[in-house]
Design a protein around this nucleic acid. Structure first.
Ligand code: FES
Ligand code: FES
Lengths: 168, 168
DNA sequence: TAAATACTTGACTGCTGTAGTCAGGAATTA
DNA sequence: TAATTCCTGACTACAGCAGTCAAGTATTTA
């Protein structure tokens, strides 16, 4: 259950544009080469991602000298969930593709024991990512959801404090 | 951002024991071979997982004929987060290991743009999994957190209903 | 028009980590 | 002793991720 670079880099790049494109009155275009350098991302790899972001209408591009990328909408109206979806970062905890007849993963036919659980978890993540805007991210305004619950605190007492460290 | 089989199988197996071990007064031991068959999991692979579950004190084992596994605590006192942690399913959206000097991933030194976001997401998932017990799972009592938020509903209007389908 | 800048696209590849296998051993019951 | 079940570590194939490469197209400046 790890986030891969596609989703991570896409959000990092979008945040970079939101932050660095505030020059002129019509927000300044940010060249991809600068993004790649600032965020330490390989340029050709970024190009792949932006191709998708553009296709989904999240960014606008301008070519030629002085060109670059701008956000298609204000940062407060672009949600992280959209970015993830645009670049094809899957947020899917279930492994049953009943419609596609993939026999990979779960028991064919009926639901497995835990289908409801993973489905609820997917929703949970989906809701979270859909509720946070790019503006929230650059403002570091992601809302701490309190500390760990008492349930997990009990767990951590057993496994030691590095478990908490790990979650941060 | 997918759940891998380690975590999934571990929870499936634990749920299986909770469901099928209700025979005698001291709950009946469930042999691993039965779990493997019912849940369609390779037996040697399951053995790996149970080795960890036992080491973390989530299950008790009895060898010999008539032996098998039982839950170490009542199902209502075992939380999904514990199971995940026991088998080493990482729930970590950040990619910065500052303490371990891994230069992999994020920009060394300061935080990247999005550290707070991924950190908050990790917490969010962590809290969720820590709040659901094994009993909740077998009762299908995972609590629907409502449907998608209004934010994401706007997204889905654009990308079509299969996006919703995908999230289920 | 020519040169410079920057975006666009598709195909290709190395490699890490996941998922799963295999063989042998130890405890318990009958 | 024989049968059943758990226990352990080392080993491997392969999908999918992360990243590269190369050639092409569009726009602006001079
Ligand atoms: S996750 Fe859907 S049937 Fe197993
Ligand atoms: S995720 Fe922690 S610094 Fe990037």
């Amino acid at each position: 259950m790890k986030l891969n670079t596609k989703g991570r880099y896409a959000v990092m790049a979008m945040a970079d544009i939101a932050k660095c494109g505030l020059g002129g009155a019509p927000s300044k275009a940010v060249p991809m080469a600068q993004i790649a350098e600032r965020q330490h991302i390989s340029l050709p790899y970024l190009e792949q991602l932006f191709s998708k972001l553009r296709r989904e209408g999240l960014v606008s591009s301008m070519r030629g000298p002085g060109g670059g990328y701008t956000l298609a909408r204000p940062a407060s109206q672009i949600y992280i969930g959209e970015i993830m979806q645009a670049v094809g970062e899957p947020v899917k905890m279930t492994r049953c593709n009943r419609e596609k007849n993939e026999s990979t993963g779960c028991i064919g036919g009926g639901d497995c024991n835990t289908h409801e659980l993973w489905s609820a978890l997917s929703d949970h993540i989906y809701n979270f990512l859909g509720s946070i805007s790019l503006q929230d991210v650059i403002d570091k305004n992601v809302g701490s959801f309190g500390s760990l619950t008492s349930n997990l605190r009990a767990v951590n007492e057993k496994t030691g404090p590095e478990a908490i460290e790990e979650a941060i």
